[in-house]
Design a protein around this nucleic acid. Structure first.
Length: 269
DNA sequence: ATCGGGACCTGCTTGC
DNA sequence: TGCAAGCAGGTCCCGA
């Protein structure tokens, strides 16, 4: 489910509700996430105050009094804050209970994870990540260096979190369309000018989506329980066979790295 | 070092 | 109507 805008939307939704709140208790109903939920999670978290709710890549980081909680929503996860007592439903794996309500993790596919760390930015999943796409260190010089000599397709490089974080399948497709770059083009064979267009395109699609509360595909809901609105217009994603809005050529669908790629063969070179 | 593919799961849609 | 196949927003890890 979530790409970066959805995770950021979730962060913004839950932060004002749980920052400064104290965890009364934690209920884990199913520990079988991508990695097992730590056996001492309940004990470690009880009584701790949430100092801050931050995001790094698609990870939500909850800074607590004496440790940090790392949460990834995987492909199908969501966090909701419930003000009223609500019976848990299918796939409601974890509750964090506060005096003013409950933060509940739901994740049907269980590709997400909930982990503990002393310092999240030194955790093995996070320490080696690339720059944030919306920060200045995702610069033209950086990207050109990262592409140099690489024969991998630009779309796959763009989705590699060690190069740049937070660009998932939807936004990789949309950004490449906006930048006019063919998704299969070798990363090392793209001019500096076109890499700059790509950086701009990535930032545009992510920012537009964040402004609109994240895209909704199927079942995304923000931290406050309201669905995101599908206001960012997808120009190629899931549009195979439809006419390209720019030139009328039918959008093509191919597969790269077991992921669907959509593009216009005329506009993207 | 780089890369491609398999793996982890459930649920929805599609086609026979 | 029922059932199987195919597909889905992520990303780690292995072997070549």
């Amino acid at each position: 489910m979530p790409e970066l805008p959805e995770v950021e939307t979730t962060r913004r939704g839950i932060a004002p509700l749980i920052e400064d709140a104290v965890i009364v208790r934690v209920i884990v109903r199913d520990r079988r996430l991508r990695w097992p939920v730590p056996p001492d999670l309940e004990q470690r978290l009880a009584g701790q105050r949430i100092q801050a709710v931050q995001r790094r890549a698609k990870y939500l980081l909850l800074r607590l009094d004496d440790c940090e909680l790392i949460v990834h929503l995987g492909m199908s996860g969501s966090l909701r804050f419930l003000e009223e007592p609500t019976p848990p439903g299918a796939h409601d794996h974890i509750d964090w209970v506060f005096a003013n309500g409950t933060l509940r993790l739901n994740d049907p596919r269980r590709f997400g994870c909930v982990l503990l760390a002393n310092k999240a930015d030194r955790h093995r999943l996070i320490a080696d990540l690339g720059p944030e796409p919306l920060e200045a260190d995702f610069s033209l010089d950086y990207l050109q260096q990262a592409c140099r000599g690489r024969r991998v397709a630009i779309k796959q490089l763009l989705m590699n979190a060690h190069v740049v974080v937070g660009v998932g399948n939807i936004y990789a497709n949309e950004a490449l369309f906006r930048a006019g770059i063919h998704p299969r083009r070798a990363a090392g064979r793209i001019s500096r000018d076109r890499l700059q267009r790509l950086i701009t395109a990535v930032r545009e699609v992510l920012n537009e989506s964040i402004e609109h509360g994240g895209t909704t595909l199927r079942d995304f809901v923000g931290g406050d329980g309201r669905p995101g609105y599908f206001r960012i217009e997808l120009k190629v994603y899931e549009r195979a066979g439809y006419a390209c809005e720019r030139c009328g050529t039918p959008i093509r669908r191919i597969v790269q790295g077991q992921r669907a790629t959509y593009y216009c063969a005329r506009c993207q070179r």
